[in-house]
């Protein structure tokens, strides 16, 4: 029974993921923004703000490009999840979600499928982003293992964001829920040390950033790329906790969608 259940979840997840990925890859209206937006952030932040690296007290060893690369990597991880939430909301608005609900013997497979698609989406974006960064001459001081850890952190961010967005999408079941998925994500990302290290922030933003969990994720990521890991364990614990928390949130969303028909 349990083995059968796993097989059912897997079949459904594979089907749902296949369609999302197919639509993502074949439709420029979906593909282009999710590739271009992170690139513009990267180009604009790393290129346009390069002088910030010379501010007194800015002591990140691997240069401003690498400093910003980590932010844009985690940001695109989060937004890959949010965009997938959009697709999910659209599906549940149009009734396609019902097709899934009907066919899926085990409905958790539906959320899993969207999550796989979100991860795929993020990987495509990261590939392009990383290639651009390397071509632009980004310094990478971290070891192979540390770089893997950086991407693993990004995977956790992606999973957490997808689960957050899925919970909203399944509750609102309309694309009107879009801002609700996007805005808090945006908020929490930008209320962190985006442009300069935490020490150089002052006033209210320093206060907020000090308690924002994204700060630890960013600092750990920047530690990995510069080969000087800090807060690594804390960051993974935060990423994992957020993922589990939002998975429960998404599960509640699934219940709500089931109850509403």
């Amino acid at each position: 029974m349990s083995e059968q259940r796993t097989a059912g979840v897997r079949a459904v997840a594979r089907g749902v993921a296949w369609r999302s990925i197919h639509n993502f890859l074949t439709n420029p209206a979906f593909l282009v923004p999710s590739l271009l937006f992170p690139l513009f952030f990267f180009v604009s932040f790393a290129g346009g703000l390069a002088a910030i690296g010379e501010v007194p007290g800015f002591d990140f060893p691997s240069g401003y490009t690498a400093f910003q690369f980590v932010f844009v990597l985690l940001q695109s991880a989060a937004f890959g999840g949010v965009f997938t939430g959009f697709a999910m909301a659209r599906d549940f608005e149009s009734g396609f979600g019902r097709r899934y609900m009907l066919a899926a013997s085990h409905r958790s497979g539906i959320v899993l499928g969207y999550a796989l698609a979100a991860l795929f989406r993020a990987f495509v974006t990261w590939t392009v982003l990383s290639a651009v960064a390397v071509v632009a001459g980004m310094e990478i001081a971290g070891s192979g293992g540390e770089i893997v850890a950086l991407y693993a952190l990004a995977v956790l961010v992606n999973v957490a964001a997808t689960m957050w967005a899925a919970g909203v999408a399944l509750r609102v079941r309309s694309i009107q829920g879009g801002p609700l998925m996007q805005f808090p994500t945006f908020l929490v990302l930008f209320l962190a040390p985006v442009y300069v290290p935490l020490d150089l922030l002052s006033g209210w933003i320093h206060t907020i950033a000090s308690i924002n969990p994204v700060t630890a994720l960013l600092e750990a990521g920047r530690g990995f790329i510069s080969g000087d890991p800090v807060l690594a364990a804390a960051a993974f614990a935060i990423g994992l906790t957020l993922s589990l928390l939002f998975a429960a949130w998404a599960r509640g969303g699934l219940r709500s969608a089931e109850a509403a028909g």
């Binding site: 007194p56 442009y195 922030l201």
Partner: peptide
Amino acid sequence: VPAIVFPLFLLAVNTGGLKEATNL
């Protein structure tokens, strides 16, 4: 609402985050 609020939010974030730029 977004047309007014969103730019103000970015204003707040950028002001807080980039204050150090004035030392350049």
